[in-house]
Amino acid sequence: MWRYLGPLIGVLALGAIFAVTLARIGTGELDVREIPSPLIGKPAPQFELPSVQDENERISTAALAGRPWVLNVWGTWCPGCRQEHDTLLRISSDSVVPIIGLNWKDERSLAMQWLTQLGNPYTKVAFDPEGDVAIDWGVYGSPETFLVSAEGIVIAKHIGPMTEQIWREKFLPLLAEKSGGGA
């Protein structure tokens, strides 16, 4: 009997997997294009880059050690970055955590213009025209936003435009947890 029911059972199991996958795509729980970062739980990659606004100012991760911070990867060529800009401005006005910008594969003058016209949500903005630092952080498309703990560990990554909801439900609880655990 099993010999003849075997194919049916196999097909039904496969169908169930497909159905669950589709349902998760439908609810937005699963994005087949999203690539999870292997950096979560690992020390944040170090960098030292010039600032967008001032070529001579160096921005280094070493100086950020000891407190949590956010890295936001953006470029003036990226529509999603324009979309999230107001959210970033609002988050930065709360001053919960410093937001460091990583200006990725961009031109200095365009980036400066963007910041002047749209407002600057960043504590500091590092300039990475070649994309070397972005590769170290495993960036594959902007905007991407990382949360780094006080111990210098990457604890969260969001791919795509930052939203109020994601900030409140994903980033803030992690921040509270980490600072609570540290105290």
Binding site: L12, G15, I25
Partner: peptide
């Protein structure tokens, strides 16, 4: 995904 569900339903019905 909605189209996917439809084809999946059809696929499972036939097989």
């Amino acid at each position: 995904p909605a189209r996917g569900m439809f084809i999946l339903g059809m696929l499972l019905f036939f097989i």
